[in-house]
């Protein structure tokens, strides 16, 4: 076993174990942290496959941004994991059997017979100054530009969907909004009402002491 293979198997084992832990652990915060570990080890696998840029982006975007946001959400929500996990042991035997069967089938297809180095050929080792970023960027903005623009549309739809589903205008009885149109259109007459009244004559104040004297 070469050193590279050792690193690969190590990282792959960490990824598999942390994936398993992520779905079995009770505490949602811990589950999110296990997922972070799975991402990091996957990034390591990608880097050993000479995809440094993708590996780093995975760490930056998923570990750095997405998972941190996700952790915030998990901490803010009061999720009752006991309820979510109900029936876990009940369905475990069936699920495990299905998973094992799928694994066996996949091993037959994905094993070395069909994807071994003698089938695919040894990947050529790139020079140290080979730019991974460029290798991704150039096709992304030329050959696959249509798909790239569509990805932007997909994100736009995501934004529209998220806002449409979550934005709630509370009724004005609950929250007071500033209505600028109304403020600008307001006339003095709306705010200030002149009331005509007869003048009131001031009565001389009779002092309390004088009354007593009379």
């Amino acid at each position: 076993m070469t050193f590279e293979q050792f690193i690969f198997y190590l990282l792959a084992a960490i990824a598999a174990v942390s994936g398993l832990m992520m779905i079995t652990v009770k505490n949602p915060v811990k589950a999110a942290l296990w997922l972070v570990l799975a991402f990091i080890s996957t990034a390591g696998v990608w880097i050993t496959a000479q995809a440094e840029f993708l590996g780093l982006v995975l760490i930056l975007v998923y570990v750095g941004a997405v998972m941190v946001l996700f952790l915030f959400v998990v901490m803010m929500l009061d999720i009752n994991m006991a309820v979510l996990k109900e029936g876990f042991t009940k369905y475990l035997p069936l699920g495990a059997m299905a998973a094992l069967a799928i694994f066996a089938l996949m091993y037959m297809v994905l094993g070395p017979e069909h994807f071994g180095l003698d089938v695919t050929g040894t990947p050529d080792v790139k020079a140290a100054d080979f730019s991974n970023t460029e290798a991704i960027a150039v096709p992304l903005y030329t050959v696959h530009v249509y798909a790239f623009v569509l990805a932007a549309v997909l994100l736009l739809v995501g934004i529209v969907a998220a806002i449409a589903l979550t934005l709630r205008r509370r009724p004005t009885t609950e929250v007071l909004y500033q209505n600028i149109d109304k403020q600008v259109k307001t006339l003095a007459a709306d705010r200030f009402r002149m009331v005509k009244m007869d003048a009131v004559k001031e009565q001389p104040i009779v002092e309390a002491g004088e009354e007593d004297k009379k």
């Binding site: 798909a147 569509l150 990805a151 549309v153 997909l154 739809v157 995501g158 969907a161 449409a164």
Partner: peptide
Amino acid sequence: YMGLEIMSLAMYA
């Protein structure tokens, strides 16, 4: 895949 996702996401919402 992109087309499928754009369509599905709009429908979920």
